[in-house]
Design a binder for these strands. Structure first.
Lengths: 207, 207
DNA sequence: TCGTGTGAACTCTTTCACAGCG
DNA sequence: CGCTGTGAAAGAGTTCACACGA
C-alpha cells in the first residue's frame, strides 16, 4: 500500500497532536477532533487511518496512548533521529537551539559553516565544524538528516555533499529548489514563497 | 475562474524563478525548464499558465521579462507588502533580518515581543514594540501580513489579535495549527512536522 | 446513540494527444 | 522542427452513505 504525501503529512500532524494530548492527560480523541486540529474533514482522517489498517477503537474515538504508540512504531517516529545544520547564519544558529526539535524526536548533533572564524565565535552547546568535514562527521555520528540554511548560491552544492555523505533526508530552508538523487527525501521550505503565496491567495480571493 | 492552491503555489515559485532569471539576463524560458525548477511536469506548468489566459509566446518559450511583469500585476506581487513579526526569540530575530524578504517584495516594518526587557536589548534597524501595541501599530503602519514566531502556547492568541488588528495574511511558524476567521489567508510552517514527514517518508519508501 | 471502517460516487488535478504557430 | 494552448482521458484524493460495534 502506497500512502500519498498528503496522507503522510496528515498522519505526521496527527502524531504531533497525539503527543500533545498525551501530555495533557487526554485519553480518547475522535476523528472529528483530529480533523479540526490538522485542518481536514473527519472522512479524510478516518480514511487515512484506515490505510494503516485502523486500530479499531470505537465509541469514544481513538485511544490516545496506544494510537500514538502504533503510529510511532509504524513510522519509526519514536526513535531519536540525528540531524545536522549547514550554514550558521542567523537562521542556522536559531535552528541549532530550536527547542521543539529536541522535544519531539530529533537531535541536532552538529553544525557546519564554511566561515572558520565564525565557527570559533559561536556560543552553543552543539559541536560546530568547518563544512569541509561534513562527510566525515555525518559518517562518524550516524547523521540521518541534513538541514540546509546556507544562502541560495551554495544550497545545491551542500545538498550534493549531504547526499554523497549518505544522509537519508534533507530539509532545505534556502530559497531555491534543490534536486537530490532518487532515494533521498527532501522538503523545500521557502519563507519568501510562503509569503508570496499568502499575498497571491488573498488577491485571488477578492475576485 | 478559481485557481487551486497547488496552482497558485506553483505560480508563486515560477514568479520567483523568473525574478532570478531576469537578474541573470536570460530572455526566454520554456515550460520544460520551469517544470524542472518548480518540481512539476511541463504539462502541469502549461496548464497552470493557461488558466491565466496564457500570454501566447511561442517557439522559444515564454519571454521572461514580460511574463514576470504579467504575473506581478495579476497577483500584485510587485508592490511592496508590509509585514510584522511577533515573538522575538531566536527565530523571530533571525527572521527580522532575513534578507530574502526584503529582496523580494516584502518589508518587515515592525517586531513585537511581550518581554519588555528583551525589546530594549535587541539590536536591529527595525522598530520593536511591546505586543500590547500590536493593533495600534498594525493600523498606523498599514501592515498586511503577520509572522508568528511565538511559542505554541500563545500562537492562537496572537493569531486572534492579528486578525482583530486587520492583517490580511498570517505566516505561522509555531508548531500548532492556528485557526483564523474566514477571509484571512494563513499558512502553517511547522519545522518539526517537516522533519517528521521526511522521516516517515523514507520509512515508507523501504516498504 | 455515537463514532469508526470502508466501498462507491464524486470532484479535483494531472497527464496525454494533438492542433497551431513561428 | 520546437514549443505553446487546450480539450479529452486518466488518475488521485476527498466526500458520502451506510453497516457495524460498544
Amino acid at each position: 500500500m502506497d500512502l500519498s504525501d498528503n496522507t503522510i503529512e496528515r498522519i505526521c500532524k496527527i502524531f504531533g497532536y497525539l503527543h500533545a494530548l498525551e501530555k495533557k492527560g487526554v485519553d480518547f480523541v475522535s476523528s472529528k477532533d483530529l480533523a479540526k486540529m490538522v485542518g481536514a474533514t473527519e472522512y479524510t482522517i478516518r480514511k487515512d487511518i484506515s490505510f494503516l489498517g485502523g486500530p479499531g477503537y470505537t465509541r469514544k474515538g481513538y485511544e490516545v496512548r496506544s494510537f500514538k504508540k502504533e503510529l510511532g512504531q509504524r513510522f519509526q517516529l519514536t526513535e531519536k533521529r540525528k540531524a545536522c545544520i549547514i550554514g550558521l547564519g542567523r537562521l542556522g544558529t536559531a535552528l541549532l537551539d530550536y527547542e521543539n526539535f529536541q522535544e519531539d524526536g530529533f537531535e541536532i548533533v552538529a553544525g557546519f559553516d564554511c566561515n572558520v572564524n565564525k565557527i570559533e565565535r559561536i556560543r552553543t552547546s552543539i559541536d560546530v565544524f568547518a563544512v569541509s568535514r561534513l562527510a566525515e562527521i555525518v559518517d562518524a555520528r550516524n547523521i540521518e538528516l541534513g538541514i540546509i540554511a546556507v544562502p541560495a548560491e551554495s544550497a545545491q552544492e551542500i545538498a550534493d555533499q549531504l547526499a554523497a555523505a549518505g544522509v537519508k533526508g534533507i530539509l532545505n530552508f534556502s530559497p531555491v529548489k534543490i534536486s537530490v538523487p532518487e532515494g533521498i527525501v527532501h522538503v523545500d521550505m521557502d519563507f519568501t514563497n510562503a509569503l508570496r503565496f499568502i499575498a497571491a491567495r488573498f488577491v485571488m480571493m477578492k475576485k
